[in-house]
């Protein structure tokens, strides 16, 4: 490493990476819930279109 990454940027990046991971996890959970409902829905997913 030859540039100074600066402590503040490293700390902020950890925060940002945490936020990204959290959002990605929420998105995965949301998709799982949607697919679960879709599989239970006898009308081909119309229940879950508004989720």
């Amino acid at each position: 490493m030859y540039i100074d990454p600066t402590t503040g940027s490293l700390v902020l990046q950890l925060v940002a990476a945490g936020v990204m991971s959290g959002l990605a996890m929420m998105s995965r959970v949301r998709e799982s819930v949607k697919s679960l409902f879709r599989s239970l829905d006898p009308r081909g997913g119309r229940w879950t279109q508004k989720l």
Binding site: T6, T7, G8, L10, V11, L12, V15, V19
Partner: peptide
């Protein structure tokens, strides 16, 4: 807000370089 404003705040907050405790 995150990559500019909070980033600027973090640079100022950790200007003394205490990254080990922070991260």
């Amino acid at each position: 807000a995150l990559h500019v404003h909070l980033h600027a705040w973090a640079q100022s907050r950790y200007a003394q370089g205490d990254s080990r405790r922070a991260s």
